[in-house]
């Protein structure tokens, strides 16, 4: 059984918890050493995905490019996004501006990868906010504007809530597209 490798990216503003989400997902296959000069860290995680046929799973290897968050001094290097089949765009539920910046990140990713790419929005630090926080309007608006968004998740890198679900959903959607 062959392994299908795919590049995905995590993008979002500085401090939204991208690295923590990846750390939670890839567990031991994670390096904390940032390639600080270059501004990207690459992690790897292999997943077994079920297929329509019984006893016939597919191994998908995610090469996750954790791209250093955008700050007011430094933008994201667009070329890092090239060749990615999917992206997890992360916002911090405790910082409204990171949610408002999501559209900008979506546009950047879509402009660089115009074909058949999948996006998941991760509203992170769900453990820190009121469960009833009213962001549904923004969320719905983003989904209606961007047909690449396949799903949105309230995630918590701290508790692990929805983290694996999110990555597996992305993997399944990418493989289904093939």
């Amino acid at each position: 059984m062959s392994i299908i490798s795919q590049k995905i990216c995590t993008i979002g503003d500085f401090g939204v918890g991208k690295t923590s989400l990846i750390r939670r997902f890839v567990e031991r296959e994670f390096s904390d050493e940032y390639l600080s000069t270059v501004g990207v860290k690459i992690s790897r995680k292999t997943m077994d995905l079920a297929t329509d046929k019984p006893d016939n799973s597919i191994k998908v290897q995610f090469l996750i490019w954790d791209i250093e968050g955008k700050t007011k001094f430094k933008g994201i290097a667009p070329s890092y996004l090239q060749g990615a089949k999917g992206a997890i765009i992360v916002a911090d539920l405790t910082r409204k501006e990171t949610i408002l910046n999501l559209q900008e990140h979506i546009d950047l990713f879509a402009s660089i990868n115009p074909k058949k790419t999948k996006i998941i929005l991760a509203f992170n630090k769900f453990d820190l906010v009121d469960q009833e926080k009213p962001i549904n309007i923004i969320k719905d608006e983003l989904i209606s504007k961007n047909n690449r968004i396949i799903s949105t998740y309230y995630t918590s890198a701290k508790t692990g809530e929805n983290v694996d679900n999110m990555f597996y959903t992305l993997a399944e959607n990418i493989i289904a597209e093939k």
Partner: peptide
Amino acid sequence: KTSGLVMAEVQPESEQKLESEMLGGMLTAI
């Protein structure tokens, strides 16, 4: 060139193999 995914590789069997996918990714990033 864009994704950094390794398409083919040749590594000596006698030596400890490099993690090609990670290497490919990092080289592409650099």
